[in-house]
């Protein structure tokens, strides 16, 4: 038996690993990379040809839609980060009766799809919603904002809070207590400890969680769809171009643009911290 003709253990191992990865790679290439490439080609196959990728934003409607989506996502990110950092830090730094239940309730909406989030916003701020009922009782006039950009804003904050709280809590739990104790032994007040020690240590987690909230708000579709089809955000614009105007090339080009923005935001997030990526509901 010729021994030299056989593969050495390491090459065999490499082959085996490649074989284990192959089915996933095949599926991924066939059903993701190839379709995306096709989408890119179709985007360039419209009336305007390849120029569409350069000119798509000169369309007033598309540009407005992109700006509105960017502003909305930035606002959602800022508010969610502020709210979740306060609540998350509080939950990590204090234990009290009912703590576990509070954490469970705050993270319960984690897996809600966008449509359900939309319905939650309707329950809060819709025509038969809680806020409407309260304002009617107090002022006599009903406050209804569910079916607008404000409603969408509320929905995305609602969607992002659980995930950001979880990220903040996970990061805060990993902080070395010695660090905080050292700062306090040096005479720092609790507020200074938060500002000088805890927030800087949480920075990677906050950046990552913020980018995730941003990307999700950019690309989410279900909530806007449930609230109103006339909210002018990019995913709705794409949907309208595709279904109502059958303008597949424009829809494809806009999808590409949107995908690029969200992917860039998340790639940035992962380079800061290896936490799990968000599900866009």
């Amino acid at each position: 038996m010729s021994v030299t003709a056989r593969l050495d253990p390491q090459s065999r191992d490499s082959l085996r690993l490649a074989a284990l990865l192959a089915p996933t790679a095949a599926l991924f290439a066939a059903f993701f990379l190839l379709p995306l490439a096709r989408l890119f080609v179709i985007g360039g196959g419209g009336d305007e040809g390849w120029a569409v990728y350069a000119t798509i934003l000169t369309n007033r409607n598309h540009l407005d839609s992109l700006i509105a989506t960017l502003l909305l996502s930035a606002g959602v990110t800022a508010v969610t980060l502020a709210v979740s950092t306060v609540a998350g830090l509080f939950l990590v730094r204090h234990r009290f009766p009912g703590h576990a239940i509070l954490v469970a309730m705050l993270t319960f909406p984690l897996a809600f799809p966008g449509v359900v989030i939309g319905f939650m916003v309707i329950m809060m701020a819709g025509r038969q919603g809680l806020i409407g009922a309260i304002t009617q009782a107090l002022t006599g006039s009903k406050l209804v904002f569910a079916y607008s950009m404000t409603g969408l804003f509320l929905g995305y904050v609602y969607f992002s809070i659980p995930r950001v709280i979880l990220t903040v809590m996970a990061a805060a739990e990993k902080l070395a207590p010695r660090l905080e104790e050292a700062a306090r032994s040096l005479g720092a007040s609790p507020w200074r400890v938060v500002a000088d020690v805890i927030l800087p240590a949480l920075k990677p987690a906050l950046l990552s969680a913020g980018a995730i909230a941003f990307a999700t708000s950019m690309g989410a579709f279900g909530t806007a769809f449930t609230l109103a089809t006339r909210i002018n955000v990019l995913p709705m614009t794409i949907y309208t171009e595709f279904t109502l105007q059958a303008n597949i090339a424009t829809a494809a080009a806009l999808s590409f643009l949107l995908g690029l923005i969200t992917w860039a935001a998340l790639a940035l997030a992962r380079s800061f911290a290896g936490s799990s990526v968000a599900a866009a509901g």
Partner: peptide
């Protein structure tokens, strides 16, 4: 042990048996 292979030309013998190509 058989967890690494020697560079080409290297041989590992257990008694009279050449085990170079055998995995651990």
């Amino acid at each position: 042990a058989g967890l690494e292979s020697p560079d080409p030309g290297g041989r590992v013998w257990f008694g009279e048996e050449d085990v170079t190509a055998l995995p651990i």
